[in-house]
Amino acid sequence: MGMPSSQDKRPDPSPGYSRYLKSQKRAWWGILLSRLLILAAFLGLWELAARLKWVDPLLTSQPSKLVTTFRELGFEGSLFMHTRVTATETVIGIVVSMVLGTLIAVLFWWSTYASKVLEPYMVVLNALPKVALGPIFYILLGDEYSVYGMAVAISLIVTIMMVENGFKELARTKLQLMESFGATRLQMLRMVMLPASVPNLIATLKVNVGLTLVGVIMGEFLSSKAGLGYLIIYGGQVFQMNMVMVSICMLALMSVVLYGIVNVIGSYMLKKGFHGRT
């Protein structure tokens, strides 16, 4: 807890410090290089094994074929369409479960009665493997919307629990002050619970990216007619390992991008919420 600092004047770094900075930089490059090396070695070995018939390329596919398949699927086929479908489903799934989950958590905080009544149901729903609900979603919601059903089913309960836990923590500390000023529940919610929950909401959002993707792909496996999950299952059924592998790579890429976007949104919200005026 230091005194407020204005701009520190920074003197020229001492020789020792320059050396330290240089060695840090060197270490960083070393790490990056090693990472790339692992990837290259993996791909190289895979290609080599397939070429020299150590393994059956029909079963394992091979990197050079993947590039061709990617080009075929990407530019003549519908790879990007499928990616877009999956991405849209995931984003909508995340938004729905975040909003719904936060609302339900607020309800639970507002009404101890509701929270107590619904507690055992939450426990059961949390423990239940949501994939088992697949056929129900398919029958009730049809092939397109059952994907959303699955996505939300998998991420909603966790969202509620994480947000609710954050609320409970806050209720023990900051609300005491609000009470001393005679604040209403709505004021507590607006002035403390929601702004103070921002870091917790961001953490929940990050967890949700992974969970919702699981739900979306699972839903697509079970029922859909489009999306990367569909492409992976379809490729498996027609014994097209190239198609399966390309779809998986695309999926990996997509999830990294989604995670990156969430990270950016998260740090923006933290900066705005916690270091400026509300």
Partner: peptide, 23 residues
């Protein structure tokens, strides 16, 4: 109170107005 309970998502002035805002 024993703990200051300042809201870290508000600056000092805005923290000072919490009670005024509630009332």
């Amino acid at each position: 109170l024993q703990r200051d309970h300042l809201f870290e998502w508000r600056d000092v002035l805005s923290n000072l107005l919490v009670g005024a805002e509630i009332r």
